[in-house]
C-alpha cells in the first residue's frame, strides 16, 4: 500500500508482491537453471559454506593454537592477521582466480582467507583468557600433553570459542557471497550467482529476493545455531 502511494517505479524498486512472485519463481523449475528449481542455489551455497568453514576452522584453529603456544609466532603473525581482517574478503578474489582458476577451489580459497584469520585470532584470545589456575589444577590432577588440551584448555576456552565461531561464521558467509557473486562462471550456481543473474537481466525483484534469502540464512544460522550454542555454554559456566 505504502509502496503504491509513494509511486516508485516498478523497475527501480519492486513491490513486495513482485518480490513474492520472485520467490515463487525460485521454487518452480527453471529451464535456465538446468531444469532444477532455483531453490538449488542456496543448497549449493550451504554445501560450500560447510566445507569452507570446516577448512577455515581447522586452519584457523591450528594457527590460533600455535600463536597462543609460541609468543614469538604471535608477535609476528598477530598484527599480520589483524591487518588481513581489514581487507574486505572480495579482495582475495583476483588472487584466488590466478592461483586456482575460476572453480570451486577458488571460491573456497576466498572463503577460507576471509574467515580463517578471524578464527585464529579469536581462538588465541579465547585461550589467553583462560585462568592459569585451571591449567595448574589440570596439571595437579595429571592432565598432561594432549589431555591438557582436550580436557582442560578446549572446554575452558568454550565461552570465548563459541563467540568466535559465531563471528567466524558470519565472516565465512559474507566471504562466500562475495566470492559467488564474482565467480559466477562455475558449474554449480550458488546464491551469489542468482544475485548477479538478477542484475544481468535487470530483474530487481530477483535481486531483492536473493538478498532476503541471504540475510535469512545468515540470521537463521546465527539465531538457531551459534547464538544458541553461546547461550548454552554461558549458562553452563554460570556466566549469565
Amino acid at each position: 500500500m505504502a509502496f503504491r502511494l509513494i509511486g516508485w517505479r516498478e523497475y527501480l524498486f519492486p513491490a513486495p508482491s513482485t518480490i513474492g512472485r520472485s520467490f515463487v519463481d525460485m521454487l518452480s523449475l527453471s529451464p535456465a537453471f538446468g531444469g532444477r528449481p532455483m531453490l538449488w542455489a542456496p543448497l549449493v551455497s550451504l554445501v560450500r559454506l560447510i566445507v569452507g568453514f570446516a577448512i577455515s576452522m581447522a586452519v584457523g584453529g591450528l594457527l590460533g593454537l600455535a600463536m597462543w603456544r609460541f609468543a614469538a609466532l604471535d608477535r609476528f603473525l598477530g598484527p599480520l592477521f589483524l591487518g588481513f581482517q581489514t581487507l574486505p574478503s572480495v579482495c582475495w578474489v583476483p588472487l584466488g582466480i590466478l592461483l586456482f582458476g575460476i572453480n570451486e577451489r577458488g571460491i573456497l580459497f576466498v572463503l577460507v582467507m576471509g574467515s580463517a584469520f578471524a578464527v585464529a585470532i579469536a581462538l588465541r584470545d579465547g585461550l589467553s583468557v583462560i585462568p592459569p589456575l585451571y591449567q595448574r589444577a589440570g596439571l595437579m590432577l595429571g592432565a598432561r600433553g594432549w589431555r591438557m588440551y582436550r580436557y582442560v584448555l578446549l572446554p575452558a576456552s568454550m565461552p570465548a570459542l563459541a563467540g568466535s565461531l559465531r563471528q567466524g561464521f558470519s565472516f565465512a558467509w559474507r566471504s562466500l557471497m562475495g566470492a559467488e557473486l564474482l565467480f559466477h562462471a562455475v558449474r554449480w550456481h550458488g546464491l551469489g550467482f542468482l544475485l548477479q543473474a538478477g542484475r544481468d537481466y535487470s530483474d530487481v525483484a530477483q535481486v531483492v529476493a536473493v538478498m532476503i534469502v541471504m540475510i535469512g540464512i545468515g540470521m537463521a544460522a546465527d539465531r538457531f545455531g551459534f547464538a544458541r550454542l553461546q547461550e548454552r555454554v554461558q549458562a553452563r559456566f554460570g556466566l549469565v
Partner: peptide, 9 residues
C-alpha cells in the same frame, strides 16, 4: 587452591 579452581564446565 584458595579459589577452589573447580572446572566450571
Amino acid at each position: 587452591f584458595q579459589d577452589h579452581a573447580l572446572f566450571p564446565w
